[in-house]
Nucleic acid binder design. Sequence first.
RNA 1: GGCCCGUUGGUCAAGCGGUUAAGACAUCGCCCUUUCACGGCGGAGACAUGGGUUCGAUUCCCGUACGGGUCACCA
Length: 544
Amino acid sequence: MDYKDLANLIFPDAKDISYYEEKYPKRNLPEGAMVVRVAPSPTGNVHIGTIDQALLNKKLAKQTGGVFFVRVEDTDQKREVENGIKQIIDSLKKFDLEPDEGMITETESKGNYGPYRQSLRKEIYEAYAKYMLAQGKAYPSFETQEELNELRAKQEAAKVRTGYYGIWATCRNLSVDEAVEKIKAGEDYIIRFKSPGREDRKIKHKDVIKGNVEFPENDQDIIIIKSDGLPTYHFAHAVDDHLMGTTHVLRGDEWLSSVPLHLQLFQELGFKPPKYAHTPTLLKNDNGGKRKISKRKDPEAAASYYEEAGIPSASVKEYLLNIANSTFENWRRANPDKSIDEFDFQLNKMSVSGALFDMVKLLDVSKNVISRYSAERVYDEASKWASEYDEELAEILKDKEYALQVFGIERGNAKPRKDLAKWSDVKDTISYMYNDKFDKNAEFEYGKISDKEEITKITKLYIEKYFNINDDKETWFNKIKNLAEELGYAREVKIYKAEPEKWPGHVGDISTVLRVTLTGRQNTPDLYEIMQVLGEDTIKDRLS
RNA sequence: GGCCCGUUGGUCAAGCGGUUAAGACAUCGCCCUUUCACGGCGGAGACAUGGGUUCGAUUCCCGUACGGGUCACCA
């Protein structure tokens, strides 16, 4: 009995790897094209980090004329969640990050390098595992979970490295005959990689983001095929990214320490390894400390959080790009109207250390993003959000024509309004533009002029003598000045400031009275525009 | 604990041996403005620490501290 016999005994039906090597030929892509991917697990609640990876990967693929694909890593059935794949696909869609290849629905995919779902690639992994077995580069291992736990305990007690390696790797030294005998006796086993590494040797690796990194070689005989017949991440990564032609693996920092293992796996499988780029983790401020943003503890870790909060996906992407390349901010300032597709993302300019997720900054970015939108787009997105998350707002927005006028206030000009950071801000910002949301008898907080009689006097005189909906802005404001003067107030703020004791107030105070009476608040956009939209009847009604 | 990675204002960050150490957000003040949101101007605020190397270190090397990651039949 030799290794080949052992391989045949374990995987009698597995195909020769040449079958797959031919089935998935080298991609015919231009020089420098990057083949990249995002490889999420369907464990529920798509992580914002996945969106981040997808965004960056997709940009890289686009910039280089390459391919961006999505591969679902569902090799852990225990953690798998119903609808997990759908959630991933939907999230990517919501962020406008659809892949060139990969899963497009729960069951369907597109592209010639599939399946793009690892659980469907079982026979492929088996072929490669068999190949390793036949070369003596992998072996069956018969320990039970309990025995492994005992091994660990022993190692911990002895204060040595834990794991399955060297003298601790008992099954590594089993002869083929012994292994065959155990298998034939019906003992359970898993397949382990026979690591050629030595811990006292170093390997050097150049990470695209982190730069040069030095590690001890891997000497762990890690499991490549689990007892459920599915591969572990490490083995699947090597096989899949080889077969799918991945050129660059962008993944979270937490994988950096697996690089020695992965390089070894590629080496022993005879594959050309991809370039690795380990992206810094998104962190979160936790009582003054920093920690990895966590799906379990932090709502903002979920990609869906932003949609629910009404933060446009475009804003999230801009913020993420901001973190990825600090040059983005300047680029955006110089090119306010360009699509982010035109921004030249540089992988090697990414920050090396993790950034604290800054919601305030995100909102600021978002404010600017929304300020660039047309009234039409604000309307579309706000109502789309409202239809799902805010019934009352959805109701308000039903009258599209009017809503467009409302959203058009101080928008579309050189200095657009920047008071909307998320769609959930909308209702409060525009409610007074709607009669059924405005209670003209409510107690408002006025400014300097708060005497009820004085207020009535001002509004009454305004309506009777000065108000005309057809006035242009200059005439309109001049009339308010005249109104101020007639009532004994300074018609210009400057005059007032020169001699404040001379007047009870100035034109601004008069405006405030009109503003508060009309809108219920002291801070609003341009009052003239508001009045134009409100219309004659509403104005007269509110001011009298 | 072992092994990795990191540490520039409150936050994100430029910086690659000689700089008055950029910029953005936040903050404070002023200006503009009939109020806000903008916009403009300005203020305060940083190279974790100790040793080297060097004529000179934020920048290079070593140690320390702190932070993060990783050590599964999870990815």
